[in-house]
């Protein structure tokens, strides 16, 4: 199966590229990037072709593309790829506006190609096991969920509003929102957010605390802050505390780790050994394309998660809770 990649603007591109190269049944054909030098650099590092024009990549007989552009470019590239008949795996968040997200979903449908959003957290063994435990009913009825998706400040275009669509709230709302929807089947009804730029000298917000009303009379909070200092042992976290009538589950998705103390690094480091979720994500998507089965994370899933982030920004402006239905 032949696959191409569009843009290495997002750092996850390298991880997906490695995954492509690891699968013997996949041929990683080449890279197009709006930054031609970056395309050249990565193509030569990875031993694949580089395409100076997007159309040249899309004219080949590749069946699918992986898009790791800036958030704002997701729509443009997805539409082009879908119109060329290629299946699309696109980095999260699906887009920066609801209009773009809808356009992506519709174009893929119309051209009969698959659209999957890159939510690798769904593919982490610890997260899958947590879902199994939740679904066993052991915790009783679910009452509340406390989540965090902390990170270090990514820099670059992530802090430019027109390219990223926002800051920490845009970057780190969607993973946990998607996990909650997938794990419990709950939908999000209302969002209240306190966010601010408190740490870094950047254009966008870098700290966020969201409080959300869900279906089934459940409430949740989520900390999206880019507040891991450079001295922190790792990039960030994904954690959830799930409170049920019969018990509590605490999930630390990257909790399978050991500590490294190295004199050259001058700080403790956490080494996670709980599985390469990016690999499983790419493999699952390509298998769905090959076997023509439904993708695990749909465009609609991506849109639902985006809505929560956009409602959070709206809430911050109004200093009031915002109903999801009001921003649709």
């Amino acid at each position: 199966m032949k696959v191409g990649m569009i843009s290495f603007a997002h750092l996850h591109a390298t991880s997906y590229a490695s995954a492509l190269l690891e699968m013997p049944w996949v041929e990683f054909v080449g890279i197009y990037d709006e930054d031609n030098d970056r395309a050249k650099e990565w193509a030569s590092k990875l031993g694949v072709k580089h395409f100076e024009k997007l159309d040249d990549l899309l004219k080949t007989d590749i069946e699918a593309v992986i898009i790791c552009s800036t958030n704002a470019d997701h729509c443009h590239y997805t539409v082009k790829a879908a119109e060329a008949g290629k299946h699309v795996l696109v980095e999260k968040p699906i887009a920066t506006t609801i209009e773009d997200a809808n356009k992506m979903i519709e174009t893929c449908k119309k051209n009969n190609v698959k659209l999957q959003i890159a939510f690798p957290v769904r593919y982490m063994p610890a997260v899958i096991e947590a879902k199994n435990i939740v679904q066993s009913g052991k915790l009783g009825r679910i009452l509340a969920i406390k989540g965090t998706n902390h990170g270090s400040m990514p820099g670059g275009w992530f802090t430019e509003k027109d390219k990223a669509g926002g800051g920490a709230v845009m970057d780190h709302t969607v993973h946990v929102v998607d996990i909650i929807r997938w794990m419990f089947g709950f939908e999000f009804k209302e969002v209240y957010a306190e966010y601010d730029r408190l740490i870094h000298d950047i254009e966008t917000d870098d700290c966020g605390l969201l409080t959300m009303e869900l279906t089934n009379n459940v409430f949740a909070t989520l900390d999206t802050s880019w507040n891991r200092p450079t001295a922190y042992p790792t990039w960030g976290d994904v954690t959830m505390t799930i409170v049920g009538t019969n018990g509590v589950l605490e999930l630390d998705a990257y909790g399978q780790k050991f500590d490294i103390y190295n004199n050259d690094v001058k700080k403790a480091q956490w080494e996670h050994w709980g599985g390469n979720s990016d690999y499983f994500l790419v493999k699952d998507f390509l298998e769905a394309c090959k076997n023509d089965t439904p993708v695990k994370v749909t465009g609609e899933d991506g849109l639902r998660a985006l809505e929560v982030a956009l409602a959070a920004y709206e809430s911050g402006k109004k200093k009031m809770p915002v109903k999801i239905e009001d921003i649709r």
Partner: peptide
């Protein structure tokens, strides 16, 4: 300017 999150629990959580 700081923001704070407080979790309180009277649920049996270990």
């Amino acid at each position: 300017g700081a923001i704070a999150h407080v979790e309180g629990s009277w649920v049996n959580g270990g």
